[in-house]
């Protein structure tokens, strides 16, 4: 009897692991001044635990909307979203967000920005709040992870764009989220900084093993980082057009991949989707 139960539990866990984040028939309609605007239609997506997913699509198709739905910042007009078997009812610390424009609070130092997150998640938990020293250690560790210990006491407007984005990542990681949501995290950065941060993010993700969903415009970035690339059709009523599996061995090295046959094949697949089958008509 017990055996059967435990077996069932394992099955359930496995099922949950396969559908760690789940979107079921999600529709999103915004009511605007000019009437209703159907942004997303019938989105179905299952994300495995520990998987790295990229969402790619033309500007305005609804990528950020998908991410905000998973974050719980917006509620779907239709359909259901789950995370770890539970319905997503609102934002929560188990789903941390790295925002498109870093969204650091300009009046706090880098350290204070990270500490604010740590304090809330670990310092105010009902069961056993952690001591101040422990919280401080967490914030310090997060900043060290992104290599910014020296910028602890600087305000966001005193550091470069790349550093800001790294603090944003540190803030999200410091919460020890189960799912990391990234909205074009490197979109505003130059190519060199971008490449460096991509490599750093790959290392960090390998270490922490958390699930990630990243919105991006960049085909190379999507393939380099992801296990699967979700390609979205154009809006209004955008949906998932295709999902591409990226079966490249990890750790991946940017230089090796440049000459890799599989990589280039995947790359042309995504490009074909974006610029042939779902080309954005010039406005």
């Amino acid at each position: 009897m017990e055996k059967i139960l435990s077996q069932e539990k394992i099955n359930l866990d496995k099922a949950n692991a396969d559908r760690y984040v789940q979107l079921e028939n999600v529709d999103m309609t915004f009511s605007t001044k000019k009437g209703d605007f159907n942004a997303l239609k019938n989105i179905n997506l299952s994300i495995k635990e520990g998987e790295f997913i990229s969402i790619i699509g033309h500007s305005g198709c609804g990528k950020s909307t998908v991410l905000n739905l998973i974050a719980g910042l917006t509620q779907p007009t239709e359909g259901l979203l789950f995370c770890a078997g539970r319905e997503i009812a609102g934002p929560g610390p188990e789903r941390a967000v790295v925002f498109q424009n870093h969204s650091l609070l300009p009046w706090l130092t880098c350290y204070e920005n990270v500490y604010l997150a740590v304090e809330r998640v670990f310092g105010a938990s009902a069961e056993k709040p952690e001591s101040k020293a422990k919280l401080k250690a967490r914030a310090d560790a997060a900043l060290e992870l992104v290599g910014l210990t020296h910028a602890n006491d600087k305000r966001p407007n005193e550091i470069s764009g790349g550093m800001k984005q790294r603090v944003g990542i540190a803030r999200a990681l410091a919460m020890e989220p189960k799912v990391l949501l990234l909205d074009e995290p490197f979109g505003a950065l130059d190519a060199l900084t971008r490449a460096n941060l991509q490599d750093e993010l790959m290392k960090i993700m390998a270490k922490s093993g958390c699930t990630a969903v990243m919105v991006t415009h960049d085909v190379d970035e999507a393939i380099l980082l992801s296990d699967r690339v979700v390609m979205m059709t154009n809006g209004p009523s955008a949906g998932i057009g295709e999902i591409l599996e990226v079966k490249l061995a990890r750790p991946r090295a940017r230089l090796d991949l440049a000459e890799d046959k599989d990589y280039n094949h995947l790359r042309s697949e995504v490009l074909r989707f974006l610029y042939e089958r779902h080309a954005k008509k010039a406005a």
């Binding site: 910042l73 934002p91 610390p93 967000v97 925002f99 969204s103 609070l105 604010l116 997150a117 919460m175």
Partner: peptide, 8 residues
Amino acid sequence: NVAKVLNL
């Protein structure tokens, strides 16, 4: 949104 995600 930061406030919401951090659940402040």
